[in-house]
Nucleic acid binder design. Structure first.
Length: 445
RNA sequence: CGGGGCGUAGCGUAGCCUGGUAGCGCGCCGGUUUUGGGAACCGGAGGCCGCGAGUUCGAAUCUCGCCGCCCCGACCA
């Protein structure tokens, strides 16, 4: 993309109603624009990040064998009356009436609807196990939205629902989600720690939430630092291997890690003192097992081997996709701006043309642009007629992981400058070498 | 939902107390000089001062009502 043809409304000054870093930076980098309290438009740069996150989530879900669907944002109240939640949910549920005076709602979650879909299409245990998921906008009419997209009223979420014949099968689905979530966050460049959690209004027995450590997090967290050392790395995960998934779950959930809701001071004290950590975290996902809470009242039954109709065991599992954008920035920024991990950066590299109009510089930039595009780096070329300082500041603000600076001075010596946003380190090398290096870095993503 | 605060140009703000031509910085447009870290100068465009009533000769300013937004707390993915 060429910056001169793009829409990137960056702000030099910070809008007054943004308190935390991610909110400030998202507004300043022209990623979002607020339309009402807790409701945002996603401008081109922000939309790119959101799409990259969605792609990773889709890939990892499908790798785990989960099946994508798409359910509507608006739901009929009838389904929620069946489960009893239409009246039980409280004011966070946005209720709407259509022209025929029918009660509708803007879905904050989809347990009822997915259960309805399941019961109308599945009647035998032979169809199990099955996990359906979608990525869709949700709405919770929070009393007090804040922190930009981290706690908006409208938010994009991946929510998945598993259907299994037995408790054991359902726990396998739980572990599958645990492992796939770990992979998902790791791919995004985040360290998310599963913590034992409260089940809240969705209800359920077994549940973990995934928290990204950040000073601005909304929850206080207590953990054994050993858990932050864990990494899935290149490990081959076989989602059908129950023993392996059980082991992964044990590995991540054995070290103490809890939010203040479930914190147990006595247990915490048993951790060696140098590993005992207290901090704050941003919740970016949660997995639940809730058994037959919905399948029984809503009649989601299958015939088992004996022909008896039994309610299916279910769980639901969410990843806060739009919130992740904020969490990523909280985890990766400095006083100059955002520092995107390569896998989720809106563009892989920025090419700064220091002398627009100079035939040699223009030609070199075009060449680099073509090479990076061909290599899948997805570059952003700053071909505006602006001063160097302004271009550098923009690149740093929007946080592209790599910057290639091309000017007459360097070209005279046959070099360009390659700068890493994360470390701030620069090196001079030929344009070809710079492109080759970036191609290598992005090849694995 | 309790407490506090704020709505003035795209963004940040002054003016409001004490009523009388709506100002500044950034950004934007044109020009000249500049050009490897947010340039300088000259010229310019852009405001129903959140909305509605009231008081007054006269309201951004005072009064009342409404709407919107933000912060702290409770709540929450």
């Amino acid at each position: 993309m060429r910056l001169s043809r793009y829409f990137l409304p960056v702000l030099k000054e910070t809008p007054s109603d943004a308190q935390i870093a991610s909110h400030r930076l998202m507004l300043r980098a022209g990623m979002i624009r607020q339309q009402a309290a807790g409701i945002y438009s996603w401008l081109p740069l922000g939309f790119r990040v959101l799409e990259k996150l969605q792609r990773i989530v889709h890939e990892e879900q499908q790798r785990a064998g989960h099946i994508p669907v798409l359910m509507p944002t608006l739901q009929p109240a009838e389904l929620w009356r069946e489960s009893g939640r239409f009246d039980a949910y409280g004011k966070e549920l946005l209720r709407i009436r259509d022209r025929h005076d029918r009660d509708m709602l803007y879905g904050p979650t989809n347990e009822e609807m997915i259960t309805d879909i399941f019961r109308s299409g599945v009647s035998s245990y032979k169809s199990l196990p099955m996990t359906l998921y979608h990525i869709q906008w949700k709405f919770r009419d929070e009393v007090r939205p804040r922190f930009g997209v981290m706690r908006g009223r409208e938010f994009l979420m991946k929510d998945g629902y598993n259907f299994d014949l037995t408790y054991e099968d359902s726990m396998h689905a739980y572990n599958r989600h645990m492992a796939s979530y770990l992979r998902t966050y790791e791919r995004m460049g985040l360290k998310a720690i599963p913590m034992r959690a409260d089940s809240g209004p969705i209800g359920g027995d077994d549940t973990h939430e995934f928290l990204v450590l950040a000073d601005t997090g909304e929850s206080e967290v207590f953990y054994d630092s050993a858990v932050t050392e864990l990494t899935l790395g290149d490990r081959a995960v076989d989602y059908d291997d129950r023993a392996q998934l059980e082991a992964i779950k044990a590995e991540w959930t054995t070290p103490y890690a809890r939010t203040d809701e479930t914190h147990d001071a006595a247990l915490f004290e048993q951790i060696p003192e140098d590993r005992r950590k207290v901090g704050r975290g941003i919740e970016v996902g949660q997995i639940f097992y809730f058994g037959i809470k919905y399948s029984e009242p809503m009649g989601a039954m299958v015939a088992d081997e004996t022909g008896a109709k039994v309610p299916v065991h279910m769980g639901s599992h969410g990843i806060g996709v739009s919130r992740l954008v904020g969490a990523l920035i909280e985890a990766h920024h400095d006083d100059k701006g955002i520092k995107w991990p390569e896998a989720v950066a809106p563009f892989g590299a920025g090419i700064v043309n220091l002398k627009v109009g100079d035939p040699d510089v223009d030609a070199a930039c075009a060449q680099i642009y073509a090479a990076l595009s061909a290599a899948g780096v997805d570059p952003l070329l700053d071909d505006r007629d602006e001063r160097a300082g302004q271009k550098f500041a923009t690149m740093e603000l929007i946080g592209l992981p790599w910057r290639i600076t091309v000017g007459p001075r360097g070209l005279k010596n046959g070099v360009v400058e390659l700068t890493c946003r994360a470390t701030g380190e620069s090196e001079e090398l030929s344009a070809e070498a710079a492109c080759l290096k970036l191609a290598g870095i992005f090849a694995g993503l």
